[in-house]
Each structure stands twice: as structure tokens, then as C-alpha cells.
Design a protein around this nucleic acid. Structure first.
Lengths: 141, 141
DNA sequence: CGGCATCCTTGCGGATACTG
DNA sequence: CAGTATCCGCAAGGATGCCG
């Protein structure tokens, strides 16, 4: 076990093995970030912007499954958290460019570490699911 | 930039900078895992079980903000994914022990890397929020 | 082009009560 | 002790329409 990633191996092991104040996780930044990560679009946009800055409709086209509502909402949230920067170019047809802030860029690494894990063990998860489904309730179709 | 975490630096940079098939993220294990991480209780339980095996009511007491419904649901989900193992001891008062599988244990590291990031940059996020709130809509109370 | 406002559906998630 | 089952509130999220 042990932790040799960033330097703080047992942030969790120190924060949670205790009586867990319940909503402490929701109040502390960890819960906040976890929520963001779990957000269907947030991390997708972060990663997308990690590659290059994008314009609004460019993002809308890139994801192509998100509604304007969610695109704007998510971007606003990320902007509020200082992960994304919004630059408005006062041209004749208004052009808005979204880019990742330095802070947002630092998120890419722990994020990719997690994504990496998912890719690596994705098969195992899938197998475990099949195995579980087989022994639970899906006998004779 | 660069990536020196797990060994696969640009899983995301390779998967997403492309036209993003939209629901590809939702279908592939990455989206799945991200959803779990974002889940309010899942990772909390994983971390908790990462310390030691726990029994049902022991977990219920530990978190103490979760309902039986969510406790069971979350545990079942984690069990289905092969992250948690459920052992039933056929004693007179039934005793069920939940523990982390080897697979589940491997998740602890990328997870703590992310949590670590959150703790490290939590202040910056908070500051960015205040800064954003100050310039958006909270003028004179 | 880049948004914001509104409506309406979906399902997550909590509280409660009952069983093995 | 370890769940299962039911009810209900609430807000996340998609579709649509209008404005700068």
C-alpha cells in the first residue's frame, strides 16, 4: 500500500477512518472536487480545454450531447472555481474563448491518474459486473 | 505538462481531444468510475473500508448521515463492481462483514491523489469562488 | 455567435415501517 | 443485526424559445 504519489499518502486515511462528521466531506474541498469529477460534463470540458482553448459553440460541437444549458452551467461553475477562464473578444460577431487556468491545468494530472486506473481496471470491473449479474438475478432469458 | 503518475500520461489527451463521441465517456469505464467518485457515499465507504473491514451497522454508525437505503444501495453497487466483498457469517445474530477487494484497494491510490489535489488547492478554489461571487452578484447586503 | 429564461420530466436520495 | 419495501420531496438535467 503506502502512498508515493503526491506526498500526502493518507489524507483520506487520516480524515475518514475517524467517526466521520458526515457532512464534513460535503463541506471540505475534497467533497467538492469529487462532486465535480463525478459530474458528467465538468471533467470532460476540463480535459477538452486542457488540449486547447475552445470557443462556446466549438465546445458544444465537440461534446455534442450536452445542452446549452448544461454547457453554460458547467462552464460557469468551473469558472467560479477558478479552473476555467472566460475571455470575451468584443468583435462584431461576439467571440468567447474558454481556456484552462494554471490551477485547472494542475487538475489534469490527478485526474488522468484516476482515468488511467479506470482504463486499466475497466475490464475487471466489467467482468465483476457480469459475474455479479449472473449470480444475482438474470437466470433464464 | 508531461505525465509521470502512473505511466499513461495522456489517456485523456488521446481519448478526448478528438471529436468526442459524446456518450463514449458514459459508456467507457472512465465515465463509470468518475460517476462513482462523484457519488457522495461510494468513495467514502471505499476509503472507510480501506482502513479495515466493517460490519453493516458499523458503517452506518461511522458515516452517520447516510440512510440504510443508501448504505445498502451503495454497498451493492460497489460489490457489483468488484470493489467490495460481502461476507455473511451465519451466526445466531447474522453478522455481515464488508471488506475491500484487491481491486478496490488499488483504487485508493489514484483516489487519494485526487483528494490530495483537492486539499492542496482547496484554498485557491475557495478564493476563486469568493472573487467570482464578489464580481458577479452579491453587491450590497 | 453566445448566451439566459422557462417548462417539464426524471430519478436520486431521505424518512419510515416491516421482515428474517 | 441486517436488510427490504414504500412514499415522497427536491433538484439535476434536457428541450424550447427569445434576446444582445
Amino acid at each position: 500500500m503506502s502512498g508515493t504519489h503526491t506526498g500526502v499518502p493518507s489524507v483520506l486515511a487520516h480524515e475518514l477512518p475517524r467517526p466521520v462528521p458526515a457532512d464534513e466531506l460535503a463541506a471540505c474541498p475534497v467533497g467538492d472536487v469529487f462532486r465535480r469529477v463525478g459530474d458528467k460534463w465538468s471533467m470532460l470540458l476540463v480535459i477538452l480545454l486542457g488540449g486547447r482553448p475552445h470557443r462556446y459553440n466549438e465546445l458544444h460541437r465537440a461534446v455534442e450531447g450536452i445542452s446549452q444549458r448544461m454547457l453554460t452551467r458547467t462552464l460557469r461553475g468551473l469558472e467560479a472555481d477558478g479552473l476555467v477562464r472566460r475571455e470575451v473578444h468584443p468583435t462584431v460577431p461576439p467571440a468567447v474563448e474558454y481556456s484552462l487556468t494554471p490551477l485547472g491545468r494542475t487538475l489534469l494530472e490527478p485526474l488522468s491518474a484516476l482515468a488511467d486506473w479506470a482504463v486499466r481496471h475497466g475490464t475487471e470491473i466489467d467482468e465483476a459486473r457480469s459475474r455479479h449479474a449472473a449470480g444475482s438475478g438474470a437466470p433464464s432469458p
